[in-house]
Each structure stands twice: as C-alpha cells, then as structure tokens.
C-alpha cells in the first residue's frame, strides 16, 4: 500500500532570529510558525488561509525545502525533507506570488529553458513541454517576448508554467492570483482546476476567500503561526450555518443612535461597527435574522439607515469571525 499522503507535518515550527539596531545589536526572536500539524492527501487541493504575516509563506517554504524547520518533522510524498532533499525537489514545483523570480531580460521560452536545465530535463522533452505549458497558461503568442515587457498577470502565469515544467506531483502555489485582474484570476483558477483534474496535489495559499471556497477541497486557517481551524469549505460554513449577515450603512453622526436601536438584539447577534470617512458600516451576524429585521424595520425609511443588505454567510464571514474570535481570546 503506497503512502497516500502528499504532505504530512508533525509539530512543524520555525523561529527566526533577527538582529536590529545600529550600535547596540539586539536579537529579536520571531516565532513564525508554531506547532503546525496537518496532512494533505494525494490528489487533494488544500488551501492555507490567514492574514498577512500569519506564517503561510514560511510554511510553504519549509514544505518546499527552502527553509529548514526549527523543530518538527515534514514528510513530502513519503520522503523526509531533511534526508531526501534532492529527491523531494525533483518531485515538487512551487511559485511565490509577485513579480520576482524571473529573468526579465530573457524571454519566457528562455526562462523556461533555463529552469528546465536546472531540473535536468532531456532537451527533447523540454522542447515538447514548453509550448504545451505556454498554451496551458495562455502565453503561447508571447513566448518569445522579454519577460520585463509582461504584465503582472502574465508573469504570474509564467511562474505557474515554470513550476509545472518537470511535471511535479505536488505543487505549491503561494498567492497565485495576487495582483491579477479578475479575468486573469478566473483563467488562472480554471488552470488550477484543470491541474487538479489531472491528479496533481496542490497546496494553495490565498487571501481571497471566494477563491478558496471555489477551489479547495479542504482549508486550514492559520494565524500567528498556528492552525486555528481546518475543515472543508462547506464544513466551515456549516459550523455557523444558521447565521446570516445583515449589513447596514449609516452616516457617522448617526452611528451612536443606530447602535442604541440595536441594543435589544445584544447577545443574539455579533455586531461589528466600522467607521469610514463619510459613512459607517454596521455588520450584524446573527442566527435570528427575523428578530433583527423586526428591530430595525421601523427605521428603514429614516436617515438612520441609508442602505440595508442581507445575505447568507460566506467563507469570508467565517474567516473573519474565526480570526476575530482568535484575536479576542488572545
């Protein structure tokens, strides 16, 4: 029975020591990732979500052999990342978000050839793979243009092609759609789905909850270096399934008055207020939407409530709730 796990970590930790100061050097210890344990099955599309600086990229770098964990074990495709580093590298592909990581003065084809050589690919195979991949990421007609002339979306797609060159079984995509326009992002998501259909295992990090909801089989939410929730997207949403979200807008002057009106539903709903420059937003998450409507309906045609919107809970709501809950409980 072959090992069915693509990724398996046990109490993975990463601590950075940074030194600061001009004259007096002080050492600051940052615990980027603490005690992270999870498994990803072969063929699964796994999402790692979390705020900036939560430890997503550090985790991905450890899983892709670029950083050594301070403690804990990591097994990739049944191989130990410390002992079998080279073997792991042959079988994984990875991209990191942003425009870095390509040689701007070379063309896309030249970039791919260069990296193909680093993966010791046979020339015949390289010649066959490059046009295929450029077609997959929709860059075939621009393959011979210098990469510095590419838009950020095109560079992002070229990153994906580069990661796929040696046909890896496991692919790490760190914020693949960051900085891409909506059409480009949709195309990229379609490509990712296609990769999954071809049986690839994919670990994806993203800030976009809709993207995670659409793509991922399972997601983990990471905050301050710890996994604080892990489930299927549907499972996460069903945890608070009976809840709805009601968003109200009001002018800043009327915010206090509106809060007072909402006081009867305290305890039956979670109320979040956000004061912007002109308007304030009040977001009410509740399991008793009808009770809330009852309370606010007399005021709907007054200045107190400018707009109202009601919807069922999205993954983003769940995410925000989990992160805020975590912040509140330290």
């Amino acid at each position: 029975m072959p090992d069915q796990k693509a990724i398996s970590t046990n109490q993975m930790q990463k601590t950075f020591k940074t030194r600061q100061g001009f004259w007096r050097r002080t050492t600051r210890v940052t615990e980027a990732v603490r005690d992270v344990t999870f498994e990803v099955n072969k063929g699964e599309l796994f999402g790692l979500l979390g705020p900036n600086g939560a430890g997503k990229t550090t985790s991905v770098k450890m899983l892709s052999t670029l950083l050594l964990p301070t403690s804990g074990t990591i097994t990739i495709l049944g191989l130990d990342i410390l002992r079998d580093t080279t073997e792991v590298r042959k079988r994984i592909g990875f991209t990191f978000g942003g425009a870095r990581g390509l040689y701007g003065r070379l063309t896309a084809v030249e970039n791919l050839r260069y990296f193909a050589e680093l993966y010791a690919m046979e020339p015949a195979l390289t010649r066959k793979r490059i046009p295929e991949l450029l077609e997959l990421v929709n860059l075939l007609d621009r393959g011979n243009d210098k990469v510095e002339t590419y838009s950020s979306g095109m560079q992002q797609r070229l990153h994906l092609a580069r990661a796929l060159l040696h046909d890896p079984e496991l692919i790490f995509l760190d914020e693949p759609t960051v900085g891409i326009d909506p059409v480009g992002a949709r195309e990229l998501r379609a490509t990712i789905k296609e990769l999954k259909a071809r049986g690839k295992t994919i670990l994806l990090t993203t800030h976009y909850m809709a993207e995670a909801d659409e793509l991922c089989d399972r997601i983990a939410i990471i905050n301050k270096g710890r996994i604080i929730a892990m489930d299927t997207p549907a499972g996460m949403k069903s945890g608070m399934t009976s809840e709805s979200v009601i968003n109200l807008r009001t002018s800043n002057e009327n915010l206090t008055a509106l809060k007072a009106i909402l006081s009867p539903i305290d305890g039956k709903a979670t109320i979040l207020c956000k004061e912007n420059t002109v308007q304030s937003e009040v977001s009410i998450r509740t399991a008793h939407p009808s009770r809330v409507i009852e309370v606010i309906s007399p005021w709907l045609n007054t200045d107190l409530i400018q707009t109202m919107e009601m919807r069922s809970q999205t993954l983003e709501d769940v995410y925000v709730a989990i992160i805020q809950n975590e912040e509140a409980n330290g």
Partner: peptide, 18 residues
C-alpha cells in the same frame, strides 16, 4: 533580489554547480 535564488536552491541542481 530578483527572487530567482530560491528557485535555483529549490531545484535539484546544486547551487555549487550553478
């Protein structure tokens, strides 16, 4: 700076050879 160093290190080819 260009972010290619980690791609090179992350490949099966040793940095020493490059």
């Amino acid at each position: 700076r260009e972010g290619t160093l980690e791609l090179i290190v992350g490949s099966p080819t040793p940095l020493r050879r490059v």
